[in-house]
């Protein structure tokens, strides 16, 4: 209702309040001498380890992933990772497991490098830093399973068991530790190790049923992962843009 009131009803009071507001906004717009630049740039990275490690451990799995992270205050690095996981496994009992689906991770890296010297002066950020981080991973997928045989040893008969393809999801949390190194002219690379914990699936029994979860790896309640990334950092530092 107050918004709808016509302005001429309170001309003096309104003029005063507008003047005060203008002064406030002008004061806010004045650049502070010690104001810190929050956004410093962003990086785009590709992971080289996932396909290699997957191939070395088990040739029946394959995974690709890439990530984008944003540099905030050189301390916080919100990150989004996206990838694609694939598994086509035939085990000794002729059970055939197949899955292929994208996966997503969201989280944040924290630069653990000391940014100030002993006398309190800020150090120059070189783009190289060690970090720890957290992630939440998620994948929506359907898996194929065939070759499951019901063996009735005592009665001496067997029959195939049908397992329907289902749309499922799995979510997990990851603790990350790694380093990022500025190589030359914005080209950066780094590695990280991850401890993943499977937190939830669309059905509790899936935690053991799923042999491979895209983005999480071979099913286990706890998984170790390794990434070796390389990419480019787009720097938006004021000093460099001037």
């Amino acid at each position: 209702m107050l918004v709808l009131l016509p302005i001429p009803f309170f001309p003096n009071e309104l003029a005063d309040s507008v003047a005060v507001e203008r002064q406030d906004t002008l004061a806010k717009k004045k650049p502070k001498k010690n104001s810190r630049q929050v956004f410093h740039g962003f990086s785009v990275h590709l992971d080289a380890a996932s396909p290699l490690v997957n191939y070395l451990i088990d040739k029946s799995t394959l995974s690709f992933e890439a990530c984008v992270d944003v540099d905030l205050l050189h301390r916080f690095f919100p990150i989004a990772e996206v990838g694609f996981g694939y598994a086509d496994k035939l085990n000794d009992d002729n059970i055939h497991y197949k899955v292929k689906a994208p996966f997503y991770r969201l989280g944040m890296n924290f630069n653990i490098l000391r940014m100030k010297s002993k006398d309190g002066e800020s150090k120059i950020f070189t783009g190289s830093y060690p970090y720890i981080g957290l992630r939440y991973g998620f994948s929506l997928f359907k898996y194929g399973l065939d070759g499951v045989i019901v063996n009735d040893d005592y009665w001496g008969v067997s029959r195939p068991m049908e397992v329907n393809l289902k749309y499922l999801y799995a979510g997990w949390a990851e603790l990350v530790a790694g380093v990022r190194v500025n190589m030359v002219k914005g080209f950066t690379m780094g590695w990280s190790v991850r401890l993943g914990v499977l937190s939830h699936t669309s059905k509790s029994s899936l935690k053991t049923q799923l042999w491979y979860i895209p983005g999480f790896g071979k099913n286990n309640t706890v998984n170790f992962m390794f990434n070796y990334t390389f990419g480019y950092t787009f720097n938006y530092d004021k000093k460099q843009t001037k």
């Binding site: 380890a49 190289s128 060690p130 190194v181 690379m189 590695w191 390794f226």
Partner: peptide
Amino acid sequence: IFEMRKLLILVVFVPLLIA
């Protein structure tokens, strides 16, 4: 210890942790 280019050594020689 982690500062600057020393990180490069870690990047190049880090052992693969394979679970």
